[in-house]
């Protein structure tokens, strides 16, 4: 019973937050609301007994990405006249409404076939989940099955994920890393110094 109350409260807050994000124009407030949205999602994951996912959502979604978005805002938010004329609105509002309504209806229709939450006969639970639950502890000696699956059974996946994060860091470094480029002459001098 208490679960349902918490679920409904969290989902209501999620809906309110997303409506507020859509209606707001202050970018700073929107970024903070994104963080609140992530925190509420983390709360939902805790209610659904997925603390590992909740942990990641709270740390990455509510923490780091908020900081990164604020840092980006601090970079781009310099009031200045736009150098272009905004194009007149060519689309019609009712067309978007129809698309959203049809997509939403299709998604709701799709949920009718989803098995109940925690249903033991759901396809997700009948494939390899049973093997992990029965064998993870005796085979790896790690009580947290999530860690066992992530690091041992699916070690290749996690290696790929780490490579992705490393690649992202390298890409950020290549794109905007280092100090802002100096005038060309000075830069050339510096390069010669580096080579020497």
């Amino acid at each position: 019973m208490i679960d349902i109350v918490i679920d409904i409260t969290l989902l209501a807050f999620l809906a309110i937050t997303s409506v507020a994000i859509v209606r707001m124009t202050n970018l700073f407030a929107i970024v903070m609301l994104f963080g609140i949205f992530s925190l509420l999602s983390a709360g939902l994951f805790v209610v659904m007994d997925a603390p590992d996912v909740a942990f990641t959502e709270a740390a990455v979604g509510a923490g780091i990405s908020t900081v990164l978005m604020l840092a980006t805002l601090a970079l781009v938010k310099k009031p200045r006249e736009p150098f272009y004329n905004e194009a007149p609105h060519a689309h019609r509002a009712w067309l978007s409404l129809v698309v959203v309504a049809v997509t939403g209806a299709a998604l709701v229709y799709g949920t009718w076939d989803i098995p109940r939450f925690g249903d033991p006969d759901a396809p997700a639970q009948t494939h390899v989940a049973r093997y992990y639950i029965e064998n993870a502890l005796p085979e790896t000696g790690v009580p947290n099955i999530v860690t066992a699956v992530l690091a041992s059974y699916r070690g290749f996946d996690t290696l790929g994920e780490v490579a992705v994060i490393f690649t992202a860091a390298v890409a950020v470094l290549l794109l905007i890393g280092g100090r802002r480029s100096k005038p060309a002459v000075e830069k050339k001098d510096k390069r010669e110094q580096d080579e020497a």
């Binding site: 780091i64 900081v67 990164l68 840092a71 980006t72 601090a74 970079l75 085979e139 790896t140 000696g141 790690v142 860690t147 066992a148 690091a151 041992s152 070690g155 996690t158 994920e161 780490v162 994060i165 490393f166 992202a168 860091a169 950020v172 470094l173 905007i176 890393g177 280092g178 100090r179």
Partner: peptide, 29 residues
């Protein structure tokens, strides 16, 4: 298995911490 998982998680932790800091310093810098 225990040793392998510990080392692998250590590798993940080091890379993630360093990558996040690299991104933050790149943006903020």
């Amino acid at each position: 298995q225990h040793l392998g998982i510990l080392l692998v998680e250590l590798g993940v932790g080091i890379t993630v911490a360093a990558a996040m800091l690299i991104m933050f310093f790149a943006f903020a810098g």
